[in-house]
Amino acid sequence: MTGTPLLKCAGVSKRFGGIRALDGVDLEVGEGEIIGLVGPNGSGKTTLLSCIAGSHSVSSGTIELAGHDIARSAPHRRAHAGIARTFQVPRPLGSFTVVENVAMSMMFGRDRVARTAALDRADLVLERVGLDAHRDRAVGVLTLHERKFLEIARALALDPRLILLDEVLGGLNPAEAAEGMSLIASLRDSGVAVVYIEHNVRAVASLADRMYVLDRGRNLAHGSPEAVLADPSVVAAYLGGEVDA
């Protein structure tokens, strides 16, 4: 990667009381790049995403977006700067319909679109993720698959430069997961950078340009998917055996 990275995390640490969830983690993401972030349970992947999105403050370290320090910015300012995120367990806004959930990102995101126009534009995003038939439904009736895709739709509606995806394929059947993977791949074509957490390492490796591996809150390895999956320390600490890359 050359030039200023879109996102640069340097020495990011996060403590929760006496527990050190992140310990000097580094991460760089280039424009339009898909980064796979893997690691065993409790390795700090979601905590790192939350630190980048601003829902957790960092204990130390720096986070820069396009060269600007955002480590102390409120989450909504990071959303305005172009960072969108999804949640591991989908968290739709319960008193809003499907289309209103998506329109919220447009009304309060980078462009602050008026409500009526935001509802119109949200239809295009719903069409893109295949939720247009559920436009006016209450979110409470959606299936897990639909809720996960609503998370992606809401993130896309922010018109982001970087999307943080937290296990968006978790719990989906193979057909739904395949649909999700092609949706993530399409983000690359639209020039949006992605940091992608998933337990399914093969799914991550098939989509990612580069991968980072965390273990117990520290960087364990990073590089091309092939190099990372072949790294003996990764195999030993995380995968626990041989992997066909």
Binding site: A74, A79, L93, M104, L158
Partner: peptide
Amino acid sequence: VTRWGAALRSIRDDESVAESLGVPTY
């Protein structure tokens, strides 16, 4: 029916999500 009301209701639903969508909740 306005943006202002939508912001307030999003705080009730999930303040952290509202922030992540760009709502200046404070």
